[in-house]
Amino acid sequence: MNNHTLIFTLISVVLTIIVYMGASKLSRVVRSPFTTPILTTTILMIAILQFSGISFDEYAPAKDWITSLLGPATVALGVPLYKNKDIIKEKLMPAALGLIIGTLATIVSAVWLSKAFHLSETIQAASAVKAVTTPVAIETVMIIGGDPTLAAAFVIASGIFGAVFAPAILTLVKISDPFSRGLSVGTVSHGIGTSQVMAEGPIQGAVSSVAMGTAAIITPVVLPLLYRFL
Rank of each mutant, 00 (worst) to 15 (best):
1 M>Y: 09
1 M>T: 06
5 T>C: 01
5 T>S: 13
8 F>R: 07
9 T>I: 01
11 I>F: 05
17 I>C: 09
18 I>N: 03
19 V>P: 03
20 Y>A: 07
22 G>I: 00
24 S>T: 14
26 L>T: 11
26 L>M: 14
35 T>P: 08
41 T>W: 00
42 T>W: 05
42 T>Q: 01
43 I>Y: 00
47 A>T: 11
48 I>T: 02
50 Q>Y: 08
50 Q>F: 09
57 D>A: 15
57 D>L: 12
59 Y>S: 05
60 A>H: 15
63 K>R: 08
66 I>H: 10
68 S>A: 15
69 L>W: 10
70 L>I: 10
70 L>T: 13
71 G>F: 13
71 G>M: 11
71 G>E: 12
72 P>T: 13
73 A>F: 02
73 A>L: 10
73 A>Y: 01
76 A>T: 10
78 G>N: 07
82 Y>T: 05
83 K>P: 06
84 N>P: 04
84 N>M: 07
86 D>G: 07
88 I>L: 14
88 I>P: 04
89 K>C: 03
93 M>C: 01
94 P>G: 06
95 A>N: 04
95 A>F: 14
98 G>F: 14
98 G>W: 09
99 L>W: 10
103 T>L: 03
104 L>K: 00
106 T>K: 03
107 I>N: 09
121 E>V: 02
122 T>Y: 00
122 T>K: 08
124 Q>D: 06
126 A>G: 09
127 S>Y: 14
127 S>H: 04
128 A>T: 05
129 V>P: 02
131 A>R: 01
134 T>L: 11
135 P>S: 12
135 P>W: 13
135 P>T: 13
136 V>E: 00
139 E>F: 04
139 E>C: 02
140 T>L: 09
142 M>H: 06
142 M>Y: 02
145 G>P: 12
145 G>Q: 07
146 G>V: 10
149 T>H: 07
151 A>K: 07
151 A>E: 05
153 A>S: 13
154 F>D: 01
158 S>E: 00
158 S>M: 15
164 V>Y: 01
164 V>F: 03
165 F>G: 04
167 P>V: 10
167 P>R: 11
171 T>W: 02
171 T>I: 00
172 L>G: 08
175 I>R: 12
181 R>Y: 04
181 R>V: 05
181 R>I: 03
182 G>K: 10
184 S>K: 10
185 V>H: 03
188 V>F: 08
190 H>V: 09
194 T>K: 09
200 E>G: 06
201 G>E: 08
206 A>V: 06
206 A>W: 12
209 S>T: 08
210 V>I: 15
212 M>V: 11
213 G>R: 08
214 T>F: 15
215 A>R: 05
215 A>S: 15
216 A>L: 05
218 I>V: 15
219 T>F: 05
220 P>F: 15
221 V>W: 08
222 V>M: 07
224 P>F: 10
225 L>E: 04
226 L>G: 13
